[in-house]
Amino acid sequence: MRDLAVQGAQMLLVLVLAPLLLGFTRKVKARMLRRRGPPVLQPYRDLLRLIRKEAVIADNASWLFRSGPYMIFAATWVAAALVPTFATGLTFSWAADLIAITALLGSARFFLALVGMDVGTSFGGIGSSREMMFASLAEPAMIMIVFTVALVAGSTQLSSIAHYTLTNASLRVSLGLALVALIIVAIAENARIPVDNPATHLELTMVHEAMVLEYSGRHLAMIELAAAVKLLVYVSLIACIFFPWGLAPPNGDLAAYATGAAAYLVKLFVGGFLLVLFETSIAKMRVFRVPDFLGIALMLGLLGTLLLFVSRSF
């Protein structure tokens, strides 16, 4: 029973914190650009307003268009529920390992790309097509990162990986390569600069925004929330694999959970800040430069895996 409560708390926590992280990054970015920026809580207000509005959908939109946002959100949310945020060894954490979490996010993207093509506008198609092109490099890169981490820790279970990092903390070449690769993948998957610009509209370079162009009201809210949760998932993944300090052990007491939650908040804000710092210091790339950028991640992941196949001590 208590395990279920902790699992439920984790699911609620990711849902509550995701818009906050988004609002925080927007605020910091605005400050770095010497703007005042919207309040940190603005994403919550946007979401609330969106879900109360009626949804305007195109005449020829199908059932997939209407059910897609919920499926996308659910798949992302489930992936987020499986990543240890403040505690390891959650009840359902053995239901899916890191490969399955990657694939769950892949499912969400699959449906996002499909709904982008549903209305049959050129913008939706361009978004879907480019998203799948990015994914065709980002996903293998992610699998290679998983391989590297799994070969070091001897497990693809996130709880076991976090436990390994906590007990055998040491600097390793392969883990360094994996960290850099994972950051690149996270930037690309979350449609951040330099791959895509989350703040842009009406530009031919946009990818994520082009796919969701036809959405409004509660459907748009679901997709926006899914995007926010996805950002949170990637920051949590980096924190859990490479910086698991503070995570509460399985069956910990309340104090351990409180420490875990506090440490998690700190990690989120540090991660968000570093992301914005990187974003403001780099220019957006041309679409066909992105494969090179993602290719670096793939090569780093492959290199990490190869090194570990050659010797376990790298």
Binding site: R52, A55, V56, D59, N60, R218
Partner: peptide, 18 residues
Amino acid sequence: IIHRFASRAVRRGPAWDC
């Protein structure tokens, strides 16, 4: 939750396409 507490209204219109 969304249909019960928020909105379930739907309006059909021509595609937006920017």
